[in-house]
Amino acid sequence: MSFSGKVHKVGAHIDTDAIIPARFLVTTDTAKLGEACMEGLEPGWVKRVHKGDIIVADRNFGCGSSREHAPLAIIGAGIRAVVAHSFARIFYRNAFNMGLMLLEVGDEVNKINDGDTLEISPEQGLIRDLDNGAEIRIPALSPMMQTLIDKGGMVNYVKEQLRLRGE
């Protein structure tokens, strides 16, 4: 199933303090966290976002702390997916556990322009910039990531494990 959204480009090494500064970590509410999404990058950044938009980032997106509030803030802001050159590893796991789709594309990220509309087709392994016509091929997800997506995230995966144990 493909989806499309407007691109908001950000730079390299966007850290979790930029995504959601520590002073906002006094709640676990997704919508509330979403209101402060990227507040550490630029105050009021989130006002430009509409539901279904896409963040496009350079290298090492999500570096820094293990706070799961970071993917939650992005989800809470209405962002559907993040495309990046590369992701920091804790953030990568957290995002899939929370149901936020991440796509790692390396240098090809430079083909995408800020403000363009991006169409993402995970099954076909394809990202298209509908404004400049650029196409980026993406590899299939690893089996473990696919399992998590199929089960609907880590919570459902563990629920099933508990059921299998008869608890």
Partner: peptide, 13 residues
């Protein structure tokens, strides 16, 4: 280091 949901999984299993 991991996120809270991985940690919850660890706490349970």
């Amino acid at each position: 280091g991991l996120g809270s949901t991985d940690i919850a999984c660890g706490m349970v299993l």
